[in-house]
Design a protein around this nucleic acid. Structure first.
Lengths: 132, 132
DNA sequence: CCTTGACTTAAAGTTGACTTGAAGTTGTAG
DNA sequence: CTACAACTTCAAGTCAACTTTAAGTCAAGG
């Protein structure tokens, strides 16, 4: 598969794929002339990267997960990442609720609404633990 | 309240608070000599900003929400942001599940494990809608 | 009066994740 | 043969969100 095909299937620009290869996040299996050739599972790998990015992971973090293909070494890493993500889910849930409340609350200024402030306080209590 | 106090209470560096004021995200209520003076509710506002950031919103998006203190105008904005955040929660949930699965699955290479791939596929289906 | 420490400004620097540009190389179609 | 599209490299540019630096202001304490 050439880079254009990979780009189409992964819905990522070719430049991004080249960049990912440059920083060692993915590999091509060789060259056909001057062109890179990718294995067909590159699509899944790119999907994993995109998912990770969408979940707020850095490319470095994703790299850690992809490096040890066997994943014996970094089971703990995976689990701790999962926990971090769960913490972020809680964060987001609070934000979502705050926004929905703000949209429905008749208060003139939300920073005077006790419910809104309570949500905020709840939120602020949490993020010292899981701050990036 | 001076900027040092605000920094302490919000757990943000003074430089960040100055920056937020510079871009119009917050306001000081005046000066005492050359020093900024903030109202005491600045702490809540900064908490809201931090929460928004932790939830992945840009400063611009947060600004939109803070601009219209009354929030009559942008009830829809709030709700649509809430929906976006909910979409991201679903994203993150998938990522969390993928990671937990990967940590527990005995497969040598996770890109050959059908469950893992299924999670990936589920994830990839979603993110075209809510991509940043 | 002088120092200290917390503040001030404006401008430049940093980081991560890409994107863009310029210049060159292929393989296929007309 | 030539044109063209799709690839290549390498360097430089971009963006958000800060941080750092340099140079200055000010009130309080010794």
């Amino acid at each position: 598969m050439d880079i254009g095909e990979a780009a189409k299937r992964s819905n990522l620009p070719a430049s991004t794929i080249r960049y990912y290869e440059e920083i060692g996040l993915i590999k091509s299996i060789g060259r056909c002339g001057i062109k890179r050739v990718f294995a067909s599972d590159i699509v899944q790998r790119l999907a994993f990267i995109s998912l990770g990015r969408a979940a707020g992971l850095s490319l470095d973090e994703i790299k850690q997960m992809l490096l040890h293909g066997n994943m014996q070494v970094n089971r703990d890493l995976l689990l701790s990442k999962a926990d971090e993500i769960e913490a972020q889910i809680n964060q987001l849930t609070l934000m979502r609720d705050s926004l929905r409340h703000a949209a429905n609350c008749p208060a003139a200024d939300h920073f005077e609404c006790p419910k809104f402030l309570k949500l905020l306080k709840l939120a602020t209590g949490r993020w010292n633990k899981s701050r990036r």
